[in-house]
Write a protein that binds this DNA or RNA. Structure first.
Lengths: 149, 149
DNA sequence: ATAAATTTGACCTTTTTTGACCTTTGACGA
DNA sequence: TCGTCAAAGGTCAAAAAAGGTCAAATTTAT
């Protein structure tokens, strides 16, 4: 397991009842024994809006980074995603979005798995790279629509 | 016995109780004393959907290749279909097969719907026609394997 | 003797990790 | 009050750590 995953898990375990955690970057980096900027990397790669998180921070003495798992407008989250999918989407972004929807129980485990399988790089192996993200967007949208009742 | 067989057996012996194994390509290649790309060759020739395997991987520090064998009880009819698909399949044939599997209760209504949505001509509309049937075959195989529990 | 399968090696892409340097903010003394 | 300094956090690019691709060379099967 790499550093990034460890740190991400640590942060998630720090989320309180309000689904938010306030961390001190330098302290956390020191505890873990990594570069300070590693914390920023983890946040920017694992706690994005696609993952369902909002991040705020303050510099200076008494500074902090506050990470909150967003919880409003759950009902419209799926429709919002459908509408916001542009003409292309990468595997990472898609994965983040689907896991987020599953976390919020807007997709069943089975639905999430099928979507990830259908849009995996392996499923698209036979076609040129330049079409893959376009395809992912098209397939994803149709599948999400199919999960609407 | 050739390298490929040895490596394939090694990987199979590494499957755990969940029928999955996480390997480190470079490490494995070094242990065996072969080219790194040999590992890829083994995977792409022996751990295909036709053989009942799902493969995922991650690059970068802490990277890995995860190989999962679809559960034993994947219905033979499904495996038959996966094996009979070949490298291309048209929308009509696919539809007929999915309906058949659904009729036999090997696919839930939801699974069938998602497969049809994901492989519809509409989902592929941005992609040149000559790729569509190839794509359908790839996506269908991955999805069928993902329908097990 | 071909054709198919295997093996290798050179080179590519993605993701993570680190470190040097930058910016913002609060506190404190002149 | 203002200026300066220390305490945070932020940015960016290079290095490192995986895994991926492709085609040529070699071996094995038909």
């Amino acid at each position: 397991m790499n550093l990034t995953k460890e740190i991400a898990e640590m942060i998630i375990s720090m989320l309180d009842a309000d689904n938010s955690a306030e961390i001190q970057r330098n302290l956390l980096a020191e505890q873990i024994g990594c570069a300070k900027s590693q914390i920023n990397y983890v946040i920017s790669s694992r706690f994005t809006p696609e993952h369902g998180y909002i991040v705020e921070s303050h510099r200076g003495g008494g500074g902090y980074i506050k990470i909150t798992k967003a919880s409003e407008n759950i009902e419209t989250l799926k429709m919002h995603l459908i509408n916001s999918i542009g003409s292309e989407i990468g595997e990472k972004t898609l994965r983040a979005n689907i896991i987020n929807l599953h976390d919020r129980e807007l997709l069943t485990e089975s639905e999430a798995k099928m979507i990830l399988a259908a849009t995996s790089e392996y499923a698209f192996r036979q076609i040129p790279i330049e079409y893959r993200n376009i395809l992912r967007a098209g397939v994803l949208k149709q599948m999400l629509l199919a999960t609407e009742k």
